[in-house]
């Protein structure tokens, strides 16, 4: 992927997919989503109590393990746990954290645009260079091209033509976390399209699933993910930033208009959208994995699970600690679910 604007400086770690990567790219930072690492979270456990979101814990752990003075942490106040993550990062890496006030309603785009300008000010200060509108527009075009290829990928995926591991690798790559030598974006290996006949097409719901072994198990048990509701999955691919509009306004409008997440107030629309995608794409079941101690997804369960089941989608609920998968329990549950479909 070319980066025509400015030389790369440090990494800009993010947690919430409502935070436009276009901005950090425009200032020469490499946007990277925090990604849960193997080996538990011993460093983060010193800062956070055990009953705080395991995703936030994994993010702090990664920062404490490998972040440098050149890196930035761009967070949104999307939940109480992320706010506390901002506090913890600020304590360990003073001056490297930005916390954005993220409104929920689409009509609040002027507030978001104003917050994005504040973020641009922070990035300008940190990178010691002023914002160049050209660089931002170029970053928007580049990111838009990436999302276009993501949407093409989802189109193939929705036909059952993508294996779980391929999708996992794609997600990693889209989040700036592709391992060396992974496949080029939007171009999964050719053999993917064959031998998918025996697979059970499912709808995958939950915040995020960074743990590779989970996807490997889906693969082993012949599931295929035809639609998802992950934070960094298909919902993010649907963002469409308009060209020709003032960039901050365009970004704020586009990100708030994307398919809504459980934090928004557009809940009926969200539930309909998730259900429709699952059914339209021929899913025969759903796997719902709320991250432990995530209130937003925990409040989705009582409403969404009965709806999925009523719509004829048998649903397996797996409570899973982020990056901490107990393989035996997981296998038993997934295998039993596969047998029941």
């Amino acid at each position: 992927m070319s980066q025509p604007f400015v030389a790369l400086k440090g990494r800009a770690f993010w947690t919430c997919s409502y935070l436009p990567c276009e901005l950090s790219s425009a200032f020469g930072y490499q946007p990277r989503r925090f990604w849960a690492q193997a080996g538990g979270t011993p460093r983060a456990d010193r800062v956070f109590p055990p009953n705080l979101c395991s995703g936030v814990r994994a993010s702090l752990e990664e920062a404490m393990r490998q972040a440098t003075a050149e890196d930035l942490f761009l967070l949104a106040d999307c939940c109480d746990a992320d706010r506390r993550l901002a506090d913890a990062l600020e304590a360990s890496f003073p001056g490297q954290t930005f916390l954005l006030f993220l409104p929920r309603a689409e009509e609040s785009w002027p507030e978001l645009a104003s917050e994005l300008r504040r973020l641009a000010g922070f990035l300008a200060k940190k990178s010691r260079r002023p914002l160049e509108e050209e660089a931002l527009r170029a970053a928007i075009i580049e990111e838009e091209a990436l999302r276009q290829s993501r949407r093409q990928f989802h189109a193939r995926q929705s036909l059952g033509g993508v294996s779980p591991i391929t999708y996992y690798e794609a997600l990693r790559s889209w989040c700036g976390r592709a391992p060396e030598g992974s496949f080029p974006l939007g171009d999964p290996p050719a053999e993917e399209s064959s031998d998918q006949g025996e697979r059970a097409p499912i709808l995958l719901l939950g915040n995020s699933l960074d743990e590779r072994s989970f996807w490997e198990m889906l693969e082993e048990l012949s599931f295929t993910v035809v639609a998802d509701d992950l934070c960094y999955g298909e919902k993010l691919s649907q963002v469409q930033v308009q060209a020709g509009v003032e960039p901050f306004e365009a970004l704020a409008r586009a990100y708030l208009a994307r398919p809504p997440c459980p934090r928004t107030q557009r809940l009926e629309e969200r539930w309909d959208d998730v259900l429709r995608r699952g059914i339209d794409r021929g899913a025969i079941g759903a796997i719902f994995i709320p991250t432990k101690f995530c209130d937003y997804y925990a409040y989705e369960l009582p409403i969404l699970v009965p709806r999925l089941r009523a719509a004829g989608l048998p649903t397996l609920v797996l409570e899973m600690d982020y990056g901490q998968v107990s393989p035996e329990q997981l296998r038993t549950r997934l295998e039993a679910f596969r047998e029941s479909l």
Partner: peptide, 18 residues
């Protein structure tokens, strides 16, 4: 008092204590 389900207060308790 770190109320078990409270992310905002209990979540910051160690930082606060420090």
């Amino acid at each position: 008092f770190s109320h078990r389900g409270c992310r905002q207060a209990a979540g910051g308790a160690y930082l606060l204590k420090e």
